[in-house]
Design a protein around this nucleic acid. Structure first.
Length: 296
DNA sequence: ACTATATCCTGTATGC
DNA sequence: TGCATACAGGATATAG
């Protein structure tokens, strides 16, 4: 569930909590969160113990904890993953999946994940950038992220704008909430064909996504419930700043019209029916259907 | 090659 | 109260 700002809050919390630490013994309580690890739960636990930790890193919604020896622990929170720091004697929260004893001082890092869409795996040689996320594009906060370059790439896609924003191989870190918020600020309907945007407009959308996520980060991320919390167990406050997401039937903050909800890819899209209309048909590149992605 | 869909899970909210 | 259903912020295999 967490998108880039929420993952960044977690990364930042881990950076503080794990500074100068090593893993002691590791206990896998449920095999599913380590299903992507090529060696299986027992090897995962054994191979991680004793590792000396470096500062956690992030790309998009992935984060990883590099080890001093060049390997890393790669983590994805999925829809409901959390990291918590506890004393070993603290009672386990429901859905606690993996325990990492920390040395020195004996704290414990715990991975809690209700739905288990998330995952943890050992990334051999992955301290800089784990190979298995090589296909994940830079996110808008990356120093080398260039909105114009990515904007041109976006325009060339034979898809629609919201799908493109959610495509992690084009730009990473944006999920359903921030896609909808970005589109509202950009006054764009999510079904707008990519080719209907010029390169400059597309670059503008990407800059807007960075702005929205930066504001969310200042608020400690978006949270609707206890499923997303930082390492201390507290929630962020951006939910109260959302302009469209989850605001069906409430007035648009720009024009007052009621926000509508559409079905999209088995989930919901929220938009203002006045501020975010589909453009009239735009001449597509050669060979493409002129009405692609457009509704009457 | 590129894009759209179905699927992996559990817990909560809602309506009958 | 009990039961069924809908829904949840993601990534990926595979179907087209």
């Amino acid at each position: 569930m967490p998108e880039l700002p929420e993952v960044e809050v977690v990364r930042s919390g881990l950076a503080t909590a794990l500074a100068g630490k090593s893993f002691g013994s590791v206990t896998v309580l449920h095999p599913r969160p380590v299903r992507y690890d090529p060696l299986g739960p027992e090897h995962f636990a054994r191979l991680l113990s004793g590792r000396v930790l470096d500062a956690p890193r992030r790309r998009g919604k992935y984060l990883w904890i590099p080890f001093e020896d060049g390997d890393a622990l790669l983590c994805h929170l999925g829809m409901s993953g959390q990291f918590r720091i506890n004393r070993p004697e603290d009672p386990l929260l429901p859905n606690t999946r993996v325990l990492f004893d920390l040395q020195p001082h004996g704290d414990q890092l715990r991975f809690v994940d209700q739905r288990m869409f998330g995952g943890l795996q050992l990334a051999i040689g992955g301290a800089e950038l784990p190979g298995v996320i090589g296909h994940i594009a830079m996110d808008p906060f990356d120093d080398d992220f260039d909105p114009l370059t990515v904007g041109r790439e976006l325009v060339s896609r034979r898809s629609t704008v919201k799908r493109a924003l959610l495509n992690q191989t084009l730009v990473s870190g944006i999920g359903n909430i921030y896609a909808d918020e970005t589109l509202w600020r950009s006054r764009l309907h999510g079904d707008t064909p990519c080719h209907a945007l010029g390169g400059r407009k597309a670059a503008g959308v990407l800059r807007t996504s960075r702005q929205v996520m930066a504001e969310a980060l200042e608020q400690g991320g978006t949270s609707f419930d206890a499923l997303y919390v930082n390492v201390n167990g507290s929630s962020g406050y951006f939910a109260r700043h959302l302009d469209v997401y989850g605001r069906e039937d409430l007035p648009c903050h720009r024009c007052g019209r009621s926000i509508v909800r559409d079905r999209f890819m088995n989930r919901s899209s929220f938009r203002c029916p006045r501020c975010q209309r589909l453009p009239r048909q735009v001449a597509p590149p050669n060979g493409q259907d002129a009405t692609l992605g457009c509704k009457p």
